[in-house]
Write a protein that binds this DNA or RNA. Structure first.
Lengths: 166, 166
DNA sequence: CAGACGTATTCCTAATTGGAACAGTACGCT
DNA sequence: AGCGTACTGTTCCAATTAGGAATACGTCTG
């Protein structure tokens, strides 16, 4: 998922953050910097990743790579663990719930703003989708992106229908 | 949203938890008990809710009601605050991303299990929707529930289409 | 009247969030 | 050459959230 070529020198925490901000945020959250580094430390302590000082550049940084043990553990997780149900935190739905405390026009404009925001997100995800292309090696990430795009389309349709009932 | 009749004696933390578990979880999270009580304490300190000892039963409990100040503040929040974009944590999409590390059959069965889980969720939400009926006073919560139902339908459709591409 | 279950609250610990703070590097501008 | 600004990289801190365990009390049932 991250990494691409696995023969490379690994990623810095900063780079992981950037990748998460670009892609992971669409179906998970963008982890905080603090979270990335503490997690890398912990993974490192448990032998799942290996952090190596990279002194080739002007500046010494730590680059992390997954270890064989880490990869095994990841695969074991993929095979065995429970599939949790997605969690959604939907501020617009939360506000709509209290629509009776807002003016009717206010509800409509809230939904309009939301539809625009979804369209914007969709555009960003589409850029990611295009980067993935139809490379066989990236087929699964591409499917995830397609899923996201279809979700945004459905969301817009639902909200526009809902809007008409107001 | 909670409360219904606002002339009543208010709700205990426990009751709030139950209501959240029944409805809020569909578009937000079920807050932990600890979170509910600490938040009630904080709201109380800031004058947004009023906690009154209820000694009418065999057992003394605290019942919380929103204050006038709390209601004003809630409405101000509804009118002014920024609309954040929904946050999704989607374990199935996350795993699908790593589909190349799973067997193809494993991916398919993961999606099947997920579709079943969505159907189950949908049923639970449908029960909530039926409780809301077509009472004008509950029109907004009912719309939120309808939104959720439509979302689940879209999700199933998307996943089934995706499944066919594998 | 013991045991199980629902109600009600408190407590504890870990994880997550959301930065700010700090420091080095690159790059263009004057 | 020196300056400012932006990017890269890491650490640190405080507040919030999460997830339950623990503790009671009440009620109902066999």
């Amino acid at each position: 998922m991250f990494g691409g070529e696995s023969s490379d020198v690994g990623l810095t925490g900063y780079e992981i953050k950037q990748r998460a901000d670009r892609t992971l945020r669409f179906y998970w959250v963008s982890p905080a910097m603090s979270q990335i580094y503490t997690e890398l430390d912990r993974l490192s302590r448990n032998g799942y990743v290996d952090g190596v000082d990279d002194t080739t550049g002007k500046r010494t940084t730590r680059r992390f790579r997954i270890t064989a043990e880490g990869r095994e553990s990841l695969e074991a997780w993929l095979h065995t663990s429970e599939h949790e149900f997605p969690i959604l935190k939907h501020p617009i739905a939360l506000r709509l719930m209290l629509g009776s405390l807002m003016g009717p026009g206010e509800v409509v404009s809230m939904l309009d703003v939301y539809v625009d925001a979804v369209a914007e997100r969709r555009k960003e995800l589409e850029a990611v989708r295009e980067m993935l292309g139809d490379d066989e090696a990236l087929a699964y990430p591409a499917r995830v992106a397609d899923w996201g795009l279809a979700y945004y389309d459905a969301e817009v349709e639902i909200v526009e229908k809902l809007r008409r009932t107001l």
